[in-house]
Every structure is written in structure tokens, then in C-alpha cells.
Design a protein around this nucleic acid. Structure first.
Ligand code: FES
Ligand code: FES
Lengths: 145, 145
DNA sequence: ATGATAAAAGACAAAAATATCTTTTATTGA
DNA sequence: TCAATAAAAGATATTTTTGTCTTTTATCAT
């Protein structure tokens, strides 16, 4: 078990890749994305459809169509992607799986778990979708394998 | 999607409950545990069997039998429970799901994700199974619902 | 020894996550 | 208008997680 679901991992990888290509001025088809982030193509298509419905990513059909981001979207936090595909359990849920995480009726891990959760939340809110465009273009980061 | 799997959540809740009862001098049957941590009884049985096989929890069959911890086991880190049921992906895995998390070929999130992962690891290694015994007996913490 | 108790083990079932395939709709360019 | 392109949508399939049930084995008390 990893921290994020497969769905969420693919979503984040795809978003970073599309952001980079948008920065370079291109729209990207599902095939190209799947190839570059090493994900099953039809499954990824479903994930991007979801992100598109939620308005996180933009898309157009037809020749020269594909997925892309505009300037405003590039500034959205990665947290929006996570929420769209996995909901907000990861931001608010109890570490031991209690129905509600609360200060007044906490589980034993509450105080320490809250710190971890807050740091994760902070990371996902301060990381924008376009944050790694230059690094990706320079080849500093990898998104496949 | 929460951070831990259901299996792992039940395992941690069960372990804390059994630890408390061991501290009070009792062994606990699966029925009592399931009732107090609000988990499906047969499913929890499977989880505890796994922990028992891995030597994380102790058990004896027969009348007055049940699950329990000895003093040494009470000092083991909660991380051992997580590893036994979920493996160590959560301690070492890449946040974006790459096959290997590495410094030399990092994903974009690597630097920040590492911090989150390290804090989680630190929490699970410094929290012993018996750490909350007194708090639980005093009713400071909840393990059900 | 014997019967009662309680975990261990194994087979099975349901639900959710992951993955695939086919058809439809929108867009483009000729 | 028409053919080509590419995402959207819907139906279906597989795998993993989650959950249940039955039988077996070990232990205890009598
Ligand atoms: S109550 Fe469990 S993390 Fe807050
Ligand atoms: S490579 Fe992704 S977290 Fe280290």
C-alpha cells in the first residue's frame, strides 16, 4: 500500500507531463501521455475524463486536439488533482480509520498523525501544476518507470 | 482513499486495544477485540493471525486463551505492525508511484514527499505498541467508530 | 481421557480498484 | 459536405481488498 492510489499517481504524473507540454505550446493526446508516464492508456483516459469534467484539465476533441492547461490552470495546486480523483479523505481523515477525526474525541495517533497530514496538505497546496515545467524540460525529473 | 489500508487501520486499533488489556493483565478474545474497535470479526481474525505468524502479537488457544503482548512486545514500534500487514511501500515508495524512489532519478515531488514520508516513518518508529496504555485506561483516547 | 474453549487454517463471497474495449460525439481540414 | 482525428461515454473484464463461513488444531479444566 502506497500513500496515494494508482489512479491518483497516474493523475499527478499525467498532469505534470501535460503541464510541461502546454508550457512548450502543445496539446497532448492520450496516447502520447500514456507513453511518457508509463500508464495503461484506456485507464488513464478515464482518469483524464474525470479531471476534465471537474475542470482541472482542459481538452478539445478532433484533429490537433488533446489535453492542455491554460495559464490560470497551471497555477492551480496539485491538491485539486488529488481531490478530484481521490476525494479529501487524505486531507481530513483519521489515521486509524475512525469515522471522524476530532480534537475532542481523538484516536491515540491523532496529535502526531495531524502533523504528517498537515505537511502532506501543505505540500499539495503549495505545489502548483506548472511548478516543475522548467525542471521537466531540462530533464531534471522523471515521470515514467 | 486514506493513508493506511483498512487492514492496517484495524491492525493498529486492535494492537492498541490488546496492549491496554495486556497492561491490565488480561488476554483478549477476537470477539472482545472486534467489539471494542468496531471491526468485522472474521476479517479482524485474519489480520491478527497474520500478526501472530509474524511474531508481532502473541496468542494462545483454548480456555482463557486469546491475544496478548509481553513486556518486550509492548516496546516494539508500531511500524512493525504496519510492515507486517501492508509491507514497507509506505516507508520507501515513490509518491508518484515510480518503481523506485531515488535521489539520482527523482520524480518532481521527491524532495517534498521525502519529508512527509520521513515524518510518517519517524512517527511509526517512535510510537511503541504500549505507548498509549495509560491514556487508553484513563479514557483519553477512542478506538471505535 | 474428555468436553469446552478459542485461535489457526482454508475455502469461499462481495465489493472496490484497476484495466480494457467499443461506440458516440465534437472538431478540424480538405 | 466529408473523411480523419481525438476525446467522451458506456459496457465489460480482471485483480485486489475487504469480508464471511466452516473445519481443524491446541489448550485448559474437570
Ligand atoms: S482522530 Fe485519529 S487522527 Fe485525528
Ligand atoms: S522518486 Fe518520487 S518520491 Fe522519490
Amino acid at each position: 500500500m502506497a500513500i496515494f492510489s494508482k489512479t491518483c499517481e497516474y493523475a499527478m504524473r499525467a498532469v505534470f507531463y501535460v503541464a510541461q507540454r502546454s508550457h512548450e505550446g502543445y496539446k497532448v493526446g492520450i496516447k502520447e501521455i500514456a507513453g511518457h508516464i508509463n500508464s495503461p492508456e484506456p485507464f488513464l483516459a478515464k482518469i483524464l475524463q474525470q479531471l476534465s469534467r471537474d475542470g482541472v484539465i482542459l481538452s478539445t476533441k478532433g484533429p490537433n486536439g488533446g489535453f492542455y492547461f491554460d495559464a490560470a490552470s497551471l497555477n492551480r495546486p496539485l491538491a485539486d488533482v488529488v481531490t478530484a480523483v481521490d476525494g479529501d479523505d487524505i486531507f481530513t481523515g483519521c489515521g486509524l480509520g475512525l469515522t471522524y477525526c476530532s480534537e475532542s474525541n481523538p484516536c491515540p495517533l491523532h496529535e502526531e498523525f495531524k502533523k504528517v497530514r498537515n505537511q502532506l496538505t501543505h505540500m499539495l497546496h503549495t505545489t502548483t501544476i506548472g511548478k516543475f515545467n522548467l525542471g521537466l524540460i531540462k530533464g531534471k525529473f522523471t515521470l515514467n518507470k
